[in-house]
Design a protein around this nucleic acid. Structure first.
Lengths: 351, 351
DNA sequence: ACCTTTGCTTTAATCGTTTAAAGTAATTAT
DNA sequence: ATAATTACTTTAAACGATTAAAGCAAAGGT
């Protein structure tokens, strides 16, 4: 039995090729190989023929650099961490896609995690990512996760909050201008002649949802519409199947029923539309409907829904670009407010 | 000006704590610290008080292990790579979520990427992930990506294909039993009395879609229904908005029009339902509708859609579990076929 | 003939861990 | 009193790359 036959058949596959192997094969030192493969051949005055030989051997052996070793030495991992709130959200898939594309453009690898709207999960993901020495983090923070965000600050890792932010925290963030976007949407309904406009939102402590309330309220005020407190309905996220119908009932059984309803999210709109279908209330003839965010679920509704569209691609792209700026130049204070665009459908009528 | 004042204010944050720092602070060697923090204190007979001291100092300094250095030495990254076909698919978010949860349970970090149904993207992601020394890969391969899959095999990294597989390749995979699932769905329609059943599928070379055709055909054959080639309509994915209506037209304008239609994906169903709404064809009174996969878009349709549901949670969970088995025991040949369950709605009528 | 420069290549320290092997002091055995 | 054992602890070599610094011929200058 020859020596070779006791080795695993695919020994060549198991033994990963390293700089050392190339060096041996090419008859040069490891350093030279490193210089050449890192494009420093000219700078380091490597003999042209030697450089060619090295490159050729590297290709022959199908050399793949060990990113781990590289990272340890250079202290650069070319890796960023992304924590979304829940991958099932349209928002999450939208920015995840945009972030991944932009990351690839910049030769960054994305480590991914979902907090599922849970603080402990968020903390665990952040710790794991930091231990993996990500160069930066993009985080969609969950409700009341200020402490977890401070954790990132203490670790002194560049990071950017997306979608949501905490005004009491000094952070860089990219969010929608929720105030302005809600304001504009409400204004649109007012411009169509509506005066009894309901806003159905989640009852939450989140700043970004509160901003939508504020935008709605201010739009009414600025157009001399006296706010009726029954118009603003707040429902709990977990119990929206029951609470949205109650809210709808409330705004439609007022002495002066609302003739327009503005939903703060696509999920709320979906619940609202179900109610309207069930009670055979016609859109837009009997009521105008405006949705914050869209959903593919609207596609089968008989009326195309007018909605605010978040610039997800832009948000994701900006998140990566700005994070890279932070990583490279340690720039601070970066507050980006993007505006939603109003996509006109047939769900709002002119009075 | 004192020496300290020229240092950055947050020098303590910048300097990452390492084993060395703990060793110095505790007055012991680096090795001892490593043993204690890796739970080898008893095995290595470390003095109990010393061990306690070390742990305390580590906590005080908020030590976080450098995963990169650890990986380099141990050759274990506790990282797996996940490549989905397109994060916008419901399938993708479903298994991504399940995979992430199961990965977290096993203290695995997930590196994520989307091929967007493109071979070059897939190849690039695989290369990047391998360079990052992932311990295994979970891949939803794209059409005709056999060569890219062979690349993984050559690198000898454990991997599992999910959702789709290539029968000509010796790989481990977890897929739906597309044949059986389509067979059962078709059988359901037959059992309700339907005899003129259309199947609308994508025209593709993918094995998993072809299997659905085969399941549909065999169900017809096994129930003595003579197949009419006009019943099987294949449309292109990119052009489905135009082609689905054409297909619907075709099956409804036959001498003996179809009275049931089975769509091979949720997106196709959506297009089909739009057609039915537009032409005011009532479901299920005038036609039965069955969908492979569900979509939240169905929620607003007046009839709840009977559909095959893929066990996404189970698929994701199994993918991680089996991948871990591969990583640990190098077990080979693992072919998992899961069955879709039929979720009954109101969209199919009994003849 | 000797020093300098040029052109190219190697040596060796380093990144932060792990871990086999060696070291050391105290205790027990002979 | 000396050897052997026990109970700890440290030393130092890896892992695979990067990179400053040193090394070494050959060519050029005086």
């Amino acid at each position: 039995m020859s020596y070779n036959s006791i080795l695993p058949i695919n020994i060549d596959k198991l033994a990963k090729v390293g700089l050392k192997d190339i060096a041996e094969q090419a008859g040069v030192s490891i350093a030279l190989v490193s210089y050449v493969l890192n494009g420093q051949a000219v700078q380091k005055q490597v003999n042209h023929d030697t450089a060619i030989k090295i490159k050729q051997v590297a290709k022959e052996l199908n050399y793949q650099p060990n990113q781990i070793a590289k990272s340890l030495k250079t202290n650069k991992t070319r890796t960023i961490g992304l924590v979304v709130a829940d991958i099932n959200y349209r928002f999450s898939t939208g920015i995840t896609r945009a972030i991944e594309i932009e990351a690839k453009k910049n030769h960054l690898t994305v480590i991914y995690g979902s907090s599922n709207e849970n603080r402990e999960n968020l903390a665990e993901l952040i710790t794991t990512f930091i231990n993996h020495r990500v160069e930066g983090l993009i985080v969609v923070p969950v409700d009341n996760s200020q402490e977890e965000i401070r954790m990132i600050q203490r670790a002194d890792i560049p990071f950017i909050l997306v979608d949501r932010n905490f005004p009491e925290l000094e952070t860089n963030y990219i969010t929608l201008d929720n105030y302005k976007s809600a304001y504009n949407a409400t204004k649109h309904l007012i411009s169509l002649g509506h005066r009894k406009i309901s806003f159905i939102n989640y009852s939450t402590t989140s700043f970004h949802f509160k901003e939508r309330n504020r935008g709605y309220m201010d739009a009414l005020k600025d157009h001399q519409i006296k706010f009726n407190k029954n118009w603003l309905q707040e429902v709990s996220n977990s119990n929206r199947d029951e609470e949205v119908p109650v809210a709808m009932n409330a705004i439609l059984s007022l002495d002066e029923p609302c003739d327009a309803v503005f939903f703060a999210t696509d999920t709320l709109t979906l619940n609202g539309l179900k109610y309207l279908i069930k009670h055979n209330i016609k859109v837009p003839d009997q009521i105008s409907v405006l949705s914050f965010d869209e959903s593919e679920a609207f596609e089968l509704f008989y009326s195309s829904i007018t909605h605010s569209r978040q610039p997800l691609d832009e948000m994701g792209k900006l998140a990566v670009k700005n994070l890279l700026n932070l990583i490279n130049h340690k720039k601070i204070e970066m507050h980006v407010h993007l505006e939603a665009s109003l996509v006109l459908g047939d769900s709002c009528y002119k009075k």
